[in-house]
Write a protein that binds this DNA or RNA. Structure first.
Length: 173
DNA sequence: TCAGTGATTAGG
DNA sequence: CTAATCACTGAG
């Protein structure tokens, strides 16, 4: 299976967030064993206008990586204990990103990073070139369910209501 | 329901 | 320098 290349990450965050579920995050462990985690849930953060997006505050030390070319990782610590992992999307100077909220078998953005082992040392990593983390397309195109994003009430309308959270919709039978 | 925990940011 | 905030989780 081939590594997903730059072009994929240059689309807008909503498009990338809709395509990511079903794809696999591949981690090369220090002992060179490869671990794969299928993405199950994402959220899109759409640039400077989106008040829920950290980049709406402008270019700061922390948000700088969101202004880089799509394919880079944006990792930050929240509540003093949980690392959040985002994939930057769009062209350079177009600050958008997709939060990874779930990756099998982990549910919840803090559990994902803890489970797969990403932390601040992965901030600014380029997924299209890194030797320790990248993305692969399995070809699986799951059914998705969209809904409002979590934990961003401070952003106010209309951002609270944007249906930019995407979850694999398990078939009920 | 609510405390833990520390980086980041705005402001004096 | 201070103080507020926070894209969460787990325990009760």
């Amino acid at each position: 299976m081939a590594r997903v290349a730059r072009e994929f990450f240059l689309s807008d965050a909503v498009t990338v967030a809709q395509r990511l579920p079903g794809m696999e995050i591949v981690m090369a462990r220090p002992d060179s064993v490869l671990k794969r985690y299928m993405i199950t849930e994402t959220e899109a953060y759409l640039g400077m206008e989106d008040k829920a997006c950290h980049a709406s505050k402008g270019r700061t030390g922390r948000t700088q990586v969101m202004f880089s070319e799509g394919g880079h990782l944006y990792l930050y610590l929240v509540y003093g204990m949980h690392w959040m992992m985002n994939i930057v999307t769009g062209a350079e100077d177009d600050p958008q990103a997709v939060l990874i909220r779930g990756a099998d078998p982990f549910s919840g953005p803090g559990r994902v990073t803890k489970g797969i082992g990403t932390n601040g040392s992965f901030n600014r990593e380029d997924m299209t070139a890194s030797g320790r983390i990248w993305l692969e397309d399995t070809g699986y195109k799951p059914c998705l369910k969209a809904g409002p994003r979590v934990g961003i009430n401070y952003a106010g309308e209309p951002w609270i209501s944007k249906p930019w959270r995407f979850i694999i919709n398990e078939q009920t039978k």
